[in-house]
Design a protein around this nucleic acid. Structure first.
Lengths: 130, 130
DNA sequence: CATTGAGCTTCCAGTCACTGGAAGGTCTAT
DNA sequence: ATAGACCTTCCAGTGACTGGAAGCTCAATG
């Protein structure tokens, strides 16, 4: 398979696939003309990466996950620990965003949003104690 | 004020303050020795920026907000629109993270996490139709 | 057989918002 | 005089791509 087909079938952009090769996540062979020659296993790996990235795992986590996937003697506890850490990082991010959301939605509600200049959003940002 | 004091009082790292000067968000004067000489208005601006960043506004949004803050003839509608757009972006991010969270927490629960290699998390990532 | 256009290659630069570190000047207190 | 704190600039790196340029290869058409 050439990169175009792999991109289509994995759902990853060609640029991303080349980048993943650059950083050693996949190692496709090369045809005589210099084109990358992907095998089914490469496609499979790339799809794995796409799903792991869609769950928010970092590239380094993905590298680890791929390693565990290919390691027959892995312990599922290793995978679970990684996933739990990531889950907890997601929870932190959600909490942070919800904090922003709460403050911001209060401010948006308080702003009448017309042609006059006075604005509670700016007042809040300016730190003016009202 | 020198940068150290401004950093402490604004809560921003010195590096960040220098960076904000680089990109033209603040323009402190200079003392004869070449040190940055911040006035109260600069400190005020930096604190404004710190609060806006803490609400997740991008640097360019912050630039716009600062401009509106200093523009006496602004219309609060402009601020409100910007804030609403940002709020909606935050909502999108929260929704995306909650999607990840849901999938991932199911997978984590399904994984027994012991010394055996079989792991539903990896099975899911591998795309195996079970 | 020449040409066109799609598809592939590499390489370089840019994104965003900092952050770290090196090399060196300045100030204050002992 | 010197130590140490504080300041300066400049360069490079982060994460995970993304865009674009210049150029090679391949398949189909006239």
């Amino acid at each position: 398979m050439n990169i175009g087909e792999v991109a289509e079938r994995s759902g990853l952009p060609q640029k991303t696939i080349r980048y993943y090769e650059d950083i050693g996540l996949v190692r496709p062979q090369r045809s005589e003309n210099g084109y990358r020659a992907f095998r089914d296993a490469d496609l499979h790996k790339l799809a794995f990466l796409g799903r792991a990235r869609a769950l928010g795992f970092s590239i380094e986590d993905c590298r680890t996950l791929l390693g565990l996937y290919e390691d027959e003697s892995r312990e599922s506890a290793q995978v679970k620990t990684l996933a739990e850490q990531h889950l907890s990082a997601i929870d932190d991010k959600i909490a942070q965003l919800q904090g922003m959301r709460k403050t911001l939605s209060h401010l948006v509600e308080a702003c009448h949003g017309d042609n006059r200049p006075d604005c509670p959003i700016l007042t809040d940002l300016s730190g003016t104690v009202s």
